[in-house]
Amino acid sequence: MSIAWNAFTPAAALIGGVIIGAAVALFVVLNGRIAGVSGILGGLARPQAGDISWRVAFVAGLIAAPLALLAALPEIRVDTSYPVLVAAGLLVGVGTRYGGGCTSGHGVCGVSRASPRSIAATVAFMAAGFATVYFVRHLIGS
């Protein structure tokens, strides 16, 4: 293993993490809910009266966030090809629903409250993520 020190951004990562934690805190202290993006979005697939507007609002907030940083938007690079993006999106869409959460609901919220279920889910998706990148970049890749 070699660490890419030139790409390492500890301050931004830590500050960004604290901001994510603040959002999670805000959501549980005011709305009493887990800030799990896959579950919030997935709930809209089976809309129920009185359960729609807060979901739409949370999703709208996420989409609106880049507008606040428009003048100083950090680097965003998507190198993945369209066919792979579609496959990845499908897998993420199916997997997060069966697994009952994603990086936010299990990885941040669940680990924050030491939920054994979420810790197991986080270990599983991290392991699969590491293995997939290894496979794509070092086994079949150039």
């Binding site: 792979v84 990845a88 869409g93 997060t96 699969a128 794509v136």
Partner: peptide
């Protein structure tokens, strides 16, 4: 489910 999600996450880097 989480393993399937992880594969998708590893393919595109997007959650």
């Amino acid at each position: 489910g989480s393993l399937v999600f992880g594969v998708g996450w590893g393919l595109a880097g997007i959650c």
